[in-house]
Design a protein around this nucleic acid. Structure first.
Ligand SMILES: [Mn+2]
Ligand SMILES: [Mn+2]
Ligand SMILES: [Mn+2]
Ligand SMILES: [Mn+2]
Lengths: 153, 153
DNA sequence: TCGTAAATTTAGCCATGGCTTAGTTTATAC
DNA sequence: GTATAAACTAAGCCATGGCTAAATTTACGA
């Protein structure tokens, strides 16, 4: 073992390692969230497009995600396999019950995060950007804390 | 275009779509964050292990990430290719200057998120879990807002 | 010292989600 | 109605990050 610097010794005292199991569990939760992340973003976007424009076309989904049409199309195919959307070749995309319900849940959570960031003084542009990533990693407990602050005055 | 429900009409008014470019940019930022995410988690963990236990062994990195040793080993190999760590076969893992500096930056940001969650009333266990994911998606602007709240009273 | 256990590496599997290029179908404008 | 443009699909590439099984190296205790 190499010798320890004064700073390192101090940091080791103030910031002890977690239990291995607890730490592994936290990373597992993050991996699980990432597995759902693109599904959530897609169904939320599809639902928003249907609401705002009457239908969700692949070309618009791809443009708003900032990826190529074939990439978006491949993920839509997975979502169809998994029962979140339906669509026939060359036609627009629809949400199943399962997809609609996930979209509603995701939008609600996304909105809480977005409004919370605005509430604590983050700019609108930054709140939009940060909430797009953060939304997938907040537990119900944290969302409740966010809601309390949104509702406080 | 199918007809619109009353709820949908209301939602379309209250929650208009973003500009396509702005929305695409937000998703691009999230994808960029995800590209750095495992790198940040690894160097932060390796640095913590070196500080607390004198060295970082693959077996411990894998255990704390909750993944198999070969999976961790493969990512360590990438980190070495990219200049974040060094290690010789069957030996422990060291951080380069680049790796150490990323570890310090990541730990600082992680700690801000963790302390912020505690401050707004989230439990310790949940704060540990949520901060592990959220840390990668908070901008400097949002971190400053978090710091203000941590420092307030 | 030497045999066994632990740690590490190697090889190869899989899913996801990016990409480009080229072909096909549908929509539009004249 | 038909030519052209737009939208979509098909095929195939790549990197990441999971996994298991098997080989190899190192560490350790008797
Ligand atoms: Mn969202
Ligand atoms: Mn998102
Ligand atoms: Mn994430
Ligand atoms: Mn993390």
């Amino acid at each position: 073992m190499p010798p320890m610097s004064a700073d390192s010794a101090k940091r080791a005292m103030e910031r002890p390692l977690q239990e291995p199991d607890a730490q592994a569990e936290a990373f597992a939760v993050v991996r699980q969230a990432h597995q759902m992340e693109s599904t959530e973003d897609y169904v939320e976007l599809i639902d928003d497009l249907i609401t705002s424009q009457g239908e969700a076309r692949l070309v618009e989904v791809a443009e708003r995600l900032g990826i190529s049409q074939p990439s978006a199309g491949k993920t839509i195919a997975r979502l169809q396999r998994e029962g979140y959307v339906t669509s026939e070749p060359y036609r627009s995309i629809f949400l199943t019950e399962k997809g609609k319900s996930l979209a509603d849940k995701s939008r609600e959570r996304h909105d809480v995060v977005y409004k919370f960031l605005l509430k604590i003084g983050v700019s609108d542009a930054t709140a939009k950007i940060d909430s797009e990533g953060v939304e997938h990693h907040v537990s119900e407990e944290t969302l409740d804390a966010f809601r309390r602050i949104i509702d406080a005055g």
